[in-house]
Design a protein around this nucleic acid. Structure first.
Lengths: 204, 204
DNA sequence: TCATAATATGAATGGATATTCACATAGTAT
DNA sequence: ATACTATGTGAATATCCATTCATATTATGA
């Protein structure tokens, strides 16, 4: 997908470009895509309205550009934090923790990605589909070596994405209580992934 | 919260009112809140633009009204379908299945509730908080009787909401494959909730 | 039948806002 | 110094859209 974005050529122009990007990320987060005007963005970036269109052909393209950039960011950051782990168990723990912490540190990303469902459905689907695909690859490997039980890994990938996304939601929107101790939350998730929810002798 | 909605007094007016509601639900689903104009709604409902304001003081209030109505619908429907179950295990299975099937039958609801994050953050928080609270009550009871393992039920409620929401997302947006056999999907979820993800002897 | 309230109309209003454009400046190579 | 390109400006434009309002129709009870 080519977005027709004009890359800045000079150092000063790079500052302008990045200023627009950063202002937009903050404003899209605070007020949403529709609650943010191009004038808001240029004002926050300290440039004139027309400057915006030197680089981006439209507000929508800027949004798409930001979404794609942030998607890559979050993925590479999680990959980075998971790298050290040797077992699937440890990978899962680190991955879940990384996602929650990242979402807390940069709630913009979380929010902007979710909003894509209502702005550009194709990008939304692409994001979760490819996230799932990468997840499945890891889970399949772990299934081959017998680290995880033989389950449909595609479904499991959505289960795990759902868990991390909703637990992160709880933390960053402060729903309910006890949202400060992330390690404790991760412990509960891992406990459930280890032993399940039900008492072994009371399953039905 | 009072929304200042004018209830219709006559039978004809009730038709008008419901026509507006229904058209709005469909359009908010298809094109989102911001992609839907009041003119779109009134045209789809077959009434004049001004008629809208006989009943709703603003487009936002209509949205809030719809959100609250649909929240109640989905909750009562799930409660209804879960009623028969005696064990927590069965309650969980029926609840998850009911949610996925309901989301598939009426994807409007699912979509409209999610969009509230970017339209009325308070309603969004309220929805998930109260959904969680009700969930916690059931889980706490099950913990008392020893049906489920002793875990932080508030965190577990978000884990379970995350699982059902994302699995439903997969089904209704047809992400990945095998989205037709809901029973099979529910089986995988219940299997994971029963036995966990990892092989017992390979946990780390 | 008449009076009154409820319901319905759709053109007009006013404000917002994405985008354009004619013009201005800054940097750079020759 | 000159010419050229990249960058920047902000007022003007044109469209869109929520909401209002003067007016019309319909239903109901006396």
């Amino acid at each position: 997908m080519h977005l027709n974005i004009k890359e800045p050529m000079t150092r000063n122009a790079q500052n302008t470009f990045q200023g627009i990007e950063r202002a937009a990320i903050r404003l899209f987060y605070e007020n949403g895509y529709y609650g943010t005007t191009v004038a808001d963005i240029t004002e926050a970036a300290g440039v004139a309205a027309g400057t915006f269109y030197l680089y981006f052909p439209s507000k929508l393209v800027l949004y798409q550009h930001i979404l794609i950039t942030l998607s890559k960011d979050i993925r590479s950051e999680i990959a980075r934090r998971v790298k050290g782990a040797t077992t699937r168990y440890e990978k899962e723990r680190l991955g879940i923790k990384a996602f929650i912490e990242y979402a807390r540190e940069r709630p913009e990303i979380y929010n902007i990605i979710w909003e894509s469902l209502h702005i550009d459905r194709r990008l939304f689907k692409e994001y979760y589909t490819s996230f799932s695909e990468r997840y499945v690859k890891g889970l399949d490997k772990a299934a081959e070596t017998g680290e995880i039980r033989p389950l449909d890994t595609e479904i499991v990938s959505f289960i795990l994405m759902g868990i991390t996304n909703f637990v992160a939601l709880k933390v960053i929107m402060d729903l309910g209580s006890n949202n400060h101790n992330i390690d404790r939350i991760v412990d509960v998730v891992m406990d459930l992934l280890e032993c399940g929810l039900f008492e072994p002798d009371r399953k039905n």
